[in-house]
């Protein structure tokens, strides 16, 4: 196995829209193993999307289980993921392996329902909340060519939203 090089902004390749996975074969599962190995090489990192390692396919891994006291599903391998429901809004701080030395506040849905295939093509459904929901939305954004930089909110705006909404 090998760790894959991670693309870093402003690399234009991070702006591309990824294609759906249509073939669920051994090559796909090998790639997912590489993707996971790459993710594990960065302690504290809770997700990685295929386009971040220059593979233009709708595949992400999310694993927030290392964070204490939050609800989670363990390691999630999401192929062709699709968010079917969004509820609530929460603001949290995000950073990204593809954007070194910068973090910022981003508003995300606090609860989501999603549908995705696993590495064998079986369709599954999940409900995520809080930190895990944020991680899933952050990774799925990568599949649509979006970085958290595209969704920044200022802290002052943030406070006003919270007070007057």
């Amino acid at each position: 196995m090998a760790r894959l090089p991670v693309l870093v902004y402003p690399d234009e390749r991070l702006k591309r829209i990824s294609n759906p996975v249509t073939e669920f074969n051994q090559e796909l599962r090998d790639f997912i193993a590489y993707l996971e190995e790459t993710l594990r090489a960065f302690p504290g990192c809770v997700g990685l999307a295929a386009p971040q390692v220059d593979r233009l396919q709708r595949i992400v891994i999310v694993d927030v289980s290392s964070k204490p006291d939050i609800p989670h599903h363990g390691r999630l391998i999401l192929v062709n993921p699709e968010i079917t429901e969004r509820q609530d809004e929460a603001v949290g701080r995000e950073g990204c392996l593809s954007v070194p030395d910068y973090t910022g506040n981003v508003a995300r849905a606090g609860r989501i329902r999603l549908r995705a295939q696993d590495a064998h093509g079986t369709m599954r459904e999940f409900e995520c909340e809080g930190y895990e929901a944020r991680a899933v939305q952050h990774e799925i954004d990568h599949l649509d060519g979006l970085l958290f930089l595209d969704r920044l909110v200022s802290r002052r705006d943030l406070f006003r939203r919270k007070k007057y909404k």
Binding site: F42, G44, C45, V46, G47, L48, A49, V62, K67, G92, R93, E94, G95, C96, L97, T103, Y131, R134, A135, H138, E139
Partner: peptide, 10 residues
């Protein structure tokens, strides 16, 4: 009020 900031890196 104080809250923890748990920066998400993805």
């Amino acid at each position: 009020k104080a809250t923890a900031i748990e920066t998400l890196v993805g």
